[in-house]
Structure formats: C-alpha cells, structure tokens
Simulated scan of single mutants.
Amino acid sequence: MSGDSYHIKDQHACYFITMTVVYWVDVFSRKDYKDILVESLDHCIKNKGLNLFSWVIMSNHVHIVARVTSDLGMSGFLRDFKKFTSKRIVEAIKEIPESRRDWLLDKFAFEALRSRRAPYYKLWRDDNHAINLTNIDMMNKIDYIHDNPVKAGIVAFPNHYLYSSAIDYAGGKGMLPVILV
C-alpha cells in the first residue's frame, strides 16, 4: 500500500497492529458493533491460524498483538477480517436502531467513492500500522494496548474494560482466547 511505512514483510512474524476506522469515526461506541469484531476474531483464532496475544477495541480503532500461523499469513488475515467485519457492521448499522445511521452510512459511502477501494461502503482505512515485534519488547506494546481504555477515561483500571485482553493478564477470563506472554 502506497504511503504505508509499516509493511508486513514476514507473514508469520508477531506484529503489533492498529486497524483504524476511516475519518476516526466512533463506530465502536455500540456493543453490537464491538461484538461483531469479537466474533470475527474468535472465528479467526479457531479457523484461520490467528494466535492472539493481546487486543483492545476502542471507539474508532482496534489494537492487536498477534501472528498468523496458517498459509493465509498476516496480510491475508487483515484483508479477510476487514472485508468481513466491514460488511457485517454496515449490515448491523442498517438493521439495528441506530440514531447515527444516515450519518455513518454517508461517511462510509463517501470514502468508498473517494478512494475507489470499495463498491458501496468503506469502513476501515487501508493502512494497518503493522510493527514487527521481532526486536521490540512485546510487553511494552501489550501494556500500551491495555492502557488505552484508561487513557481514554473509559475505566480506571485496564482489567475493568471488557473489550480487551487485560482481564486475561490480570488472571481472569476474557472474551477471547489469548496466549499469555
């Protein structure tokens, strides 16, 4: 992807990934939309070779520390995950009572038209801010991920945020199976 200085060179290495919604739209402020992401990550863990070490869903972006062991590779996982979740979230926006329905769909339709990278709606930015963790302290990135909801003022303690692996690192059981580091 042009302009993306965070290229995925080793498809099976461990990466810190940031996936961002176009225009930083706060689409994941609703439980319904976050649950779509959780279900999709769970599917990828069970069926696509995703090894998830850490994750958090914020209102307009998602952070993960992960690697993909299947032939799909990290790029294939990101492509498929974003394509599937984009379609499902747009469907959900149309189906559930959503006060911002027209505004959200207009934003995503505008970006699809502007970028010419999707036929009707574009939810995710193309870049993934992928950082290979081969020579970087993975725990620093995991702590960063877990501190996101605290810094955003959503919770006082990282393990109080449900849509994160911080619960697992505090000795509890979170929403997704993670590999503890």
Rank of each mutant, 00 (worst) to 15 (best):
G76C: 09
I136S: 03
F81K: 00
N128Q: 05
S59C: 12
E39Y: 13
A118D: 02
K31C: 09
A109Y: 04
R117W: 14
L113Y: 12
R117H: 15
M139Y: 04
R79H: 15
K46P: 13
L123D: 08
A92W: 14
G49D: 02
W55E: 08
I36D: 06
D143M: 03
R79K: 15
E98H: 06
D71S: 07
L50I: 01
W103A: 15
S99D: 14
H61K: 02
I45S: 00
D106N: 03
S86K: 01
S40F: 05
I131S: 04
P119V: 02
I145L: 09
M138W: 06
L78Y: 14
M139T: 00
I93C: 01
W103I: 13
W124F: 05
K46Q: 14
F110A: 11
V90N: 01
D35N: 14
D147N: 00
V65K: 11
D143G: 01
L50Y: 03
I93K: 00
D32G: 13
W55R: 06
V38Y: 02
L41W: 15
M139D: 01
P149W: 13
V150G: 02
D32E: 15
T134R: 15
M74F: 15
F81N: 01
L37Q: 04
V62S: 03
E111P: 03
N135F: 15
K141L: 09
Y33P: 14
M58G: 13
N140R: 11
S86F: 11
A118G: 00
V68E: 06
W124P: 13
D126K: 01
I64P: 11
A66Y: 08
A112I: 02
V68N: 06
H129V: 12
